[in-house]
Simulated assay, not measured.
Amino acid sequence: MIGHVGSFVSAPVAFIAAQNVAKGGRVQPPESCLPVIRLDQIDPKRHLLIAGPTASGKSALALRVARAQGGLIVNADALQIWSCWRVLTARPSPEDEAAAPHALYGHVAPGVTYSVGDWLRDLAGLLERRLIVVGGTGLYLTALTQGLAYVPPTPSEIRAEGDARLAAEGGLARMVADLDPATRDRIDIQNPARVQRAWEVLAATGRGLADWQADTPPPLVAPDQAQRLVVTADRDWLARRIALRFGQMMQHGALEEVRAMLPHWNPGQQWARAIGAPELVAHLRGQMDLPTATERAIIATRQYAKSQRIWFRGRMKDWSPVSADAENTRND
């Protein structure tokens, strides 16, 4: 059987911990109408792709499959690529990495710009092996299986003009009006970031974003080359898991990890987007007490999990949903 993970904090912690002790150290998933996948249902001759929200148990599932069937576990989490965050992003432990081969974890230094295109390039060099790709970054996984359009980078002067236009009164509506019809019909025109990005592409290249996306190359991993799973979990169950796991992170050095990066802290950098990092930085700077920082970090993690689930439901409908499993209660 296969699929789950852990976290903690403050008032609910005693109750959760008591539940854990009563249940052998595991937070049990609720009853689900979805199947819990078995190892004998996983095809060892194809790549295995495992998506799931944070703390749902997907990393534990990947490790169990790798130990039973072989394969290289490949990270598909945009937060776990950074070398500075092991504990805070729940990267596989050294023991897990010793139990099965892992790739693309902690391989990018802070300050380096790293895109989904960079990730695809790095993964392409691994395709001669059977891969077990696991993570919660939906953009990585959809780009892997659907292809990624090349869009030229935006010049800094166009980006600055876009920032100014969006900040002006009525700027969003004017930007939407400037877009080409095909792009305007495709994107979420209520999302300022999406609209500005589309406007910048059109301003910089003279071609609409939809036109660039129409030139998407074939995917690195076609649907028939992989078994694709989405680990699902009840929202309240997952919230308890997130809380329990964050407490475990704190016990294992998350605050010290953030303290080590404090001299280099820049909230505008990609590496600084690790969930919980801004709240712990605020605590270390004396801007809030530790219980408040912890509570806010847990809330931010729940919000992140919600956005992951929305992506999976909206963009990965042809992936097979499987229920989380209490046997998988290691870090995710």
Rank of each mutant, 00 (worst) to 15 (best):
L220W: 06
L220Y: 07
V221D: 07
A222Y: 06
A222S: 14
P223W: 09
P223C: 03
D224S: 12
Q225D: 13
Q225V: 02
A226F: 04
Q227M: 10
Q227V: 02
R228I: 05
R228A: 12
R228L: 11
L229F: 04
L229D: 09
V230E: 08
V230A: 10
V230R: 11
V231Y: 00
A233L: 12
A233I: 09
A233D: 12
D234C: 05
D236M: 10
D236Q: 14
L238G: 12
R240W: 12
R240A: 15
R241K: 11
R241C: 15
R241S: 14
I242Q: 05
A243T: 11
L244D: 15
R245D: 15
R245Y: 08
R245T: 05
R245E: 08
F246N: 02
F246S: 07
F246K: 05
G247M: 00
M249N: 06
M249G: 07
H252V: 04
G253N: 05
A254E: 09
A254M: 03
E256R: 13
E256P: 08
E256C: 03
E257D: 10
V258E: 01
V258F: 03
R259M: 00
R259D: 13
A260G: 12
A260Q: 14
A260H: 13
A260F: 00
A260M: 05
M261H: 02
M261G: 02
M261A: 14
M261D: 06
L262C: 09
P263F: 01
W265D: 15
N266A: 15
N266Y: 03
P267C: 04
W271Q: 10
W271T: 06
A272S: 14
A272N: 10
R273C: 05
A274S: 12
A274H: 04
I275K: 08
I275S: 13
G276V: 02
G276R: 03
G276S: 10
P278H: 01
P278A: 08
P278E: 08
E279M: 12
L280S: 02
V281G: 04
A282E: 12
A282N: 00
A282P: 04
H283G: 13
H283Y: 15
H283R: 04
R285H: 08
R285G: 14
G286L: 03
Q287W: 00
Q287C: 04
Q287T: 05
